[in-house]
């Protein structure tokens, strides 16, 4: 594929993330602005931290003057699920040379999901992943800046537009379900996270879910060839 085709392919894949990140970013920028942090703070945090849910929590942590230790622990707790994400792209990232540190930095829930929508093989796949990651990062930062600058002037309600990310997760889930040899991992994921949600509550169920799911899948994988 030519450079132009790669870029175009990456852009088309990035559209779901664009819908989600720009509008979610605007919401973030508005909240930052209201807490007294101008658009340049949203930009810096979007660039160097780049993680959806935790950035929202960080606003209240910073404005209440929380200790650096509690900020570190909250980040550790909220983002620890992402330790698992690199497993799926371990080989790819290692083959991406200079882009590898950036690919690690830009591995969010959304880019993890959207990387699974790339239907190309090997080299072309990796060539798409880098521009795709940059585009997604750009949308997120752009949203934050827009929110800070013009967020309070948007005349219509965009509430609910961030559902497009949920929709994308559902679509990828259905797509993987249809192509999977075994539905066991998907069912384990649904059942375990459902139970964890009801037992532990919405704020605390992600990490335990992933730990339990990984344990179950590792045990059930024993003896199988990769």
């Amino acid at each position: 594929m030519s450079k132009k085709e790669i870029f175009k392919y990456a852009f088309v894949r990035s559209i779901p993330v664009m819908c989600s990140y720009i509008f979610l970013g605007i919401a973030y920028g508005i909240l930052m602005e209201k807490a007294g942090y101008g658009w340049y703070y949203s930009l810096i945090i979007g660039l160097v931290v780049y993680t959806g849910a935790f950035q929202f929590v960080l606003i209240s942590l910073m404005s209440s003057g929380a200790s650096l230790l509690s900020i570190a622990l909250t980040a550790l707790f909220m983002n620890s699920r992402q330790v698992f994400y690199s497993l799926s792209f371990f080989k790819d990232f290692n083959l991406m040379g200079k882009a590898k540190p950036y690919m690690i930095h830009s591995l969010t829930d959304e880019t993890y999901a959207v990387n699974h929508t790339i239907m190309l093989k090997d080299e072309d796949r990796r060539r798409v992943m880098f521009p795709l990651a940059v585009m997604c990062h750009f949308y997120w930062c752009l949203g934050g800046v827009l929110g800070g600058l013009i967020g309070l002037m948007i005349p219509f309600s965009t509430e609910g537009i961030d559902f497009c990310m949920t929709a994308l997760f559902v679509i990828i889930f259905v797509g993987q379900w249809e192509s999977a040899k075994s539905h066991f991992p998907a069912v384990v994921g649904l059942v375990v996270s459902g139970i964890c949600l009801f037992v532990l509550g919405a704020d605390r169920f992600m990490l335990p879910s992933l730990l339990i799911v990984s344990t179950i899948l590792t045990i059930s994988n024993r003896g199988k060839e990769s």
Partner: peptide, 8 residues
Amino acid sequence: LPSAIMAV
């Protein structure tokens, strides 16, 4: 993991 993570 991907199918399971997507479910989560």
